[in-house]
């Protein structure tokens, strides 16, 4: 894949390991300025790990083994801890899945927001407070002044997620990573939070890496989609193209089983045969990781060493060995 200049984030051949286990294998993706890229895939396929790798926040015992993470042409995989701290919260913001646990229970909302603001912006305490109130308002938190002095347990889940979002955008980042930002919320709140993310992305002209289980969210909110399976990117395409002509059998399975919209992705694979071992243990082995579950698998699928995949004329990537992408699902 070639990185068109003007891309905000380009990940090439990213490999992340823990001793003996390859967790991410040759992950590649790119996000343009102001664009929304959706990362989908079932539980444990490495979506969160990819997000954390970008921020240089891989868990203890998990290390970056190979590959580039180019953010505005700077390789974050090789950046110093100090440089990474400058980028985190300033140029790249993170919103996590569970708003119940992503705020410190013993600190006031305002204090937690100002912490991010004053780390990166040269503001006085007074100015930082003003900025925090402004951000709460921008994130649609009613009565900012009251919420500012409250503690996380005094807020509902939806409000807490708004606070997390307000904090993540406090230094107007160029990229916002939202890791399943609505999974822990009820349905009406989900829509509101997604609307908020969409609006902020446009108003602040930032790019959005939206990790989700839910293809209906992808269809409505994303410009591009990246499907992961067992630590690899198996399909990458523009959203319209993806829904019209899915190429990889796994993606087809996903789309097929999500016709009855509403249920999240990870509940939809019950019908497919269980593969032995976790899907992470399949990563890094030779052959297509999806082969054991694939109904189109041939003898070659299990043997071929790291099949590079094909990219068609519409820049639509599929890691499948099958030459004919238009085969029916």
């Amino acid at each position: 894949m070639t990185a068109a200049s003007g891309e905000l984030l380009v990940i090439r051949d990213l490999v992340v390991e823990r001793p003996g286990v390859r967790l991410l294998d040759s992950v590649a993706l790119s996000i343009g300025k102001g664009e929304t890229l959706s990362l989908v895939g079932e539980s444990g396929c490495g979506k969160s790990l990819s997000a954390l790798a970008i921020l240089g926040l891989l868990p203890e015992g998990v290390r970056h083994a190979r590959g580039e993470i180019l953010f505005e042409d700077e390789d974050l995989a090789r950046a110093s801890p100090r440089r990474l701290r400058q980028i985190r919260g300033k140029s790249i913001g993170l919103v996590m899945q569970d708003p119940m646990s992503s705020l410190d229970p013993v600190l006031q909302i305002g204090a937690q927001m100002e912490e991010a603001i004053r780390t990166h912006l040269p503001l006085s305490a007074r100015q930082a407070r003003g900025r925090a109130l402004e951000l709460l308002d921008l994130a649609g938190v009613p009565e900012p002044l009251r919420r500012y002095g409250q503690y996380p347990h005094q807020l509902s889940g939806g409000l807490r997620q708004r606070v997390s979002i307000a904090t993540a955008i406090s230094c107007t980042p160029r990229l916002l990573i939202a890791d399943e930002p609505t999974t822990a919320l009820d349905v009406t709140t989900q829509v509101q939070v997604l609307d908020l993310l969409d609006r902020l992305r446009r108003e602040l002209s930032m790019a959005l890496l939206l990790i989700t289980h839910d293809l209906s969210i992808v269809a409505r909110r994303a410009d591009k989609v990246c499907v992961m399976y067992a630590g690899r990117v198996v399909e990458r395409a523009g959203v319209d193209d993806f829904f019209a002509h899915p190429r990889h059998p796994y993606s087809k399975g996903l789309l097929h089983s999500s016709l009855g919209a509403g249920t999240p992705l990870h509940h939809r694979f019950d019908r497919l045969p269980e593969i032995t071992g976790s899907i992470a243990s399949a990563a890094g082995q030779s052959g297509c990781p999806f082969a054991p579950r694939c109904d189109q698998a041939e003898a070659a699928c299990g043997k071929t060493l790291s099949w590079p995949g094909t990219t068609d004329s519409r820049d639509h990537f599929s890691a499948c060995l099958h030459p004919n992408p238009e085969e029916s699902a």
Binding site: L57, R85, G93, L94, E115, A116, T119, H120, T167
Partner: peptide
């Protein structure tokens, strides 16, 4: 999680422990 969230804000490790 809130520690990871705080690290993602760019806090220094010592600030993280202290605050």
């Amino acid at each position: 999680d809130f520690i990871l969230a705080a690290r993602a804000k760019g806090l220094h490790p010592v600030t993280l422990i202290r605050r």
